[in-house]
Amino acid sequence: MNAHSKLNPSGSSALSAEARVARYDWQKLSSELSGFGCSVMEKLLSPEECREIAGLYPQEEHFRSHIHMARHGFGKGEYRYFKYPLPDLLGGLRTALYPRLAEVANDWNTRMGIDQRYPANHAAFLKQCHDQGQTRPTPLLLQYVPGDFNCLHQDLYGDLAFPLQVAILLSEPGKDFTGGEFVLTEQRPRMQSRVEVVPLRQGDAVAFAVHNRPVQGSKGSYRVNLKHGVSRLRSGMRHTVGIIFHDAK
């Protein structure tokens, strides 16, 4: 069986994705997301699945565009945006993860006094994106070599943006690469920035806030601003897949 067929198992990917997402303690993950802006799902993908997805990188038929970060001031490194249809494994995970994260997103918006509410399933949310002219898929595959890094940023591709996203590390730290830590910064009003370094192993996923999250203060909840990035790669090669839930213009 080749990599493409494994990534596109006929009829089984949605069930497989839902089953693997359901095995996590979502009450604990939601609490960590609300408390720290990020939470790790260990071993979301197997090492074999990680290698298969990373192996798609040179196969241009899977992608709609190829971005070199240095050309845009994003850092140093490169990534490719997948085109529709997504590989079944990634599409299935995007569909299965969304409703779990939508509950968190709706709770956050309530606490922050934001009127936007997200529908219970991903297809309905994508329809909202497409109705606003945001039709281009945003899941992406990133590749770093020594010296590469990703500047602190927020993935906001249009007026309609889902406030949480997921990144899955496809390479094994210490074996495939060194350096290249995932970092998250948080800026609270009138305070110094807080930095979270998130340790990941191959196949681990981190869910994190894209833009804002609520923090409880003495006079109710207030918004803090978050950005994420990747520190400098010291050696080897690092691949990551990013699952962003809104589409782009």
Rank of each mutant, 00 (worst) to 15 (best):
L29G: 06
V195T: 14
D131L: 02
C129N: 05
G37C: 03
I114M: 15
S231F: 03
K83R: 15
L140Y: 03
I243E: 04
H66N: 15
Q202C: 09
R111A: 13
W108Q: 08
L89H: 03
P99V: 01
V210L: 14
E103T: 14
G113V: 09
H66I: 11
K6I: 13
C50V: 00
G73M: 02
F82S: 07
Q187V: 10
G174L: 05
R51F: 10
T135I: 10
Q132E: 14
S218Q: 14
V21P: 07
Y81G: 00
Y144Q: 11
Q134T: 09
R194G: 03
K249Q: 14
I243N: 07
S39R: 05
E103D: 15
M237L: 12
A205P: 08
A124H: 13
E186I: 05
G113F: 06
L141T: 01
P163N: 03
E60N: 14
G91Y: 02
L142S: 04
K127V: 06
E103W: 09
H153N: 04
D176C: 05
G92M: 06
N121S: 12
R20E: 11
H72S: 10
L97R: 08
G113A: 10
V198G: 06
V241P: 01
K83S: 13
R117Y: 07
A22W: 12
T110M: 14
A209I: 10
L101I: 04
V241L: 01
K227E: 11
T135W: 07
N212Y: 06
L226P: 08
L142F: 05
F82M: 09
A123V: 09
F74D: 01
E48V: 12
M41T: 03
V206H: 12
H4W: 13
A96W: 10
N8G: 01
A161E: 11
P214T: 03
N109P: 09
D159G: 08
A17D: 05
L44K: 02
A96S: 14
M41V: 02
P9A: 01
G133T: 08
L15R: 10
S31M: 10
P9S: 01
S235G: 08
L184S: 05
G147E: 08
L160R: 12
F182G: 12
F36C: 13
S218W: 01
R238L: 07
P85F: 04
L90F: 01
R51I: 09
R232F: 10
R213K: 02
S65R: 15
V224F: 03
N8M: 01
M41S: 06
G179E: 12
A120R: 14
F125Y: 15
R64A: 02
F208T: 02
N106Y: 14
C50T: 00
G75T: 05
P173T: 01
V206T: 10
K6Q: 15
I168A: 10
P199K: 01
N225L: 09
R188Q: 10
L86V: 00
L29F: 04
H211M: 11
S39V: 03
P85Q: 07
L90Y: 00
C129L: 04
G147V: 11
I114C: 15
L140A: 13
L97T: 08
